[in-house]
């Protein structure tokens, strides 16, 4: 019995002693800040790029090379209006680049060599602000206000789409033009819309409408409930994949007063 007691004590002691061998995580919390805005080039930083809040919008990628030649990227995503702000970043030296529905800042030749490199390498300490100027694939402007029909079941909107870049490598056909509709959120886009109602032109029809250069008018499809207000926004994309996805360019969202009209 006594033996049992001793061995129990020994075991508990050993447990306690070895437990202290586990290293305590006493690193500081990440508290540096990286923020900025992705602007449309040529607007003298007056116009930021319109995007969507998701990993299909504008991605900010940070790479810390001090540990590995092929580090695990740290990604975060810009807000709907092209601004970004991350207040939880570890101190360090990072290579930073943005990717989205615009002419890529990093371009590769057909064998994978980096030919254009617009990335920035910077020490992140305290608050660092980096703005970017990019050439969007497409520019979309509202023409007038979206109009609700008399029965309050459809919205019609007019807009104009033009190329945002003269770069000959990014003049692919327009494959989709959408009038995205959302019944509850200002954050509307292809990640967050009601597929039943969103008006659309796809494939050849989209390119044909774009190619005329005229004002395009789209109406929502089906008939939605008049019992609420809707948020609408136009998105269009060309047949080019940025990081594995065809990404939409947008104009700024508008509220269509259906209920509160």
């Amino acid at each position: 019995m006594k033996n049992l007691k001793y061995s129990l004590i020994c075991c508990s002691l050993a447990l306690l002693v070895f437990y202290s061998c586990v290293p305590l995580d006493n690193y500081d919390m990440p508290e540096e800040t990286l923020k900025g805005t992705v602007y449309v080039a040529g607007t003298n930083k007056t116009e930021s790029i319109q995007t969507e809040v998701s990993d299909q919008g504008v991605r900010i990628r940070m790479l810390e090379y001090s540990w590995s030649d092929n580090p695990q990227p740290f990604d975060f995503y810009a807000m709907q209006d092209g601004k970004y702000n991350n207040t939880k970043i570890f101190k360090g030296n990072y290579n930073i680049c943005v990717a989205g529905p615009f002419v890529p800042l990093q371009q590769y030749d057909p064998s994978g060599n980096l030919t254009v490199d617009g990335s920035i390498t910077r020490d992140i300490k305290g608050t660092v602000e980096i703005d970017w100027e990019v050439e969007p694939f497409l520019k979309i402007e509202w023409v007038g206000e979206p109009v609700v029909n008399a029965a309050k079941t459809k919205i019609t909107a007019s807009f104009r789409i033009t190329r945002g870049t003269n770069n000959p490598n990014f003049q692919q056909n327009v494959t989709d033009i959408y009038l995205f509709v959302n019944s509850s959120s200002y954050h509307v886009g292809q990640h967050n819309h009601d597929n039943r109602y969103s008006g659309r032109l796809q494939g050849n029809a989209a390119q044909a409408a774009f190619a005329t250069g005229d004002v395009i008018t789209l109406t929502t499809q089906g008939e939605f409930s008049p019992e609420r207000d809707y948020y609408v926004r136009v998105g269009a994309r060309i047949n080019y994949q940025t990081e594995g996805q065809q990404r939409y360019n947008y104009n700024e969202p508008k509220k269509a007063n259906v209920l509160s009209n």
């Binding site: 990993d55 590995s68 030649d69 092929n70 695990q72 990227p73 994949q241 990081e243 594995g244 996805q245």
Partner: peptide, 16 residues
Amino acid sequence: PSDRINESPSLLQNLG
């Protein structure tokens, strides 16, 4: 898988 890239740095990650 990122742990495979950590072990084998010449593995290039897929797009996106």
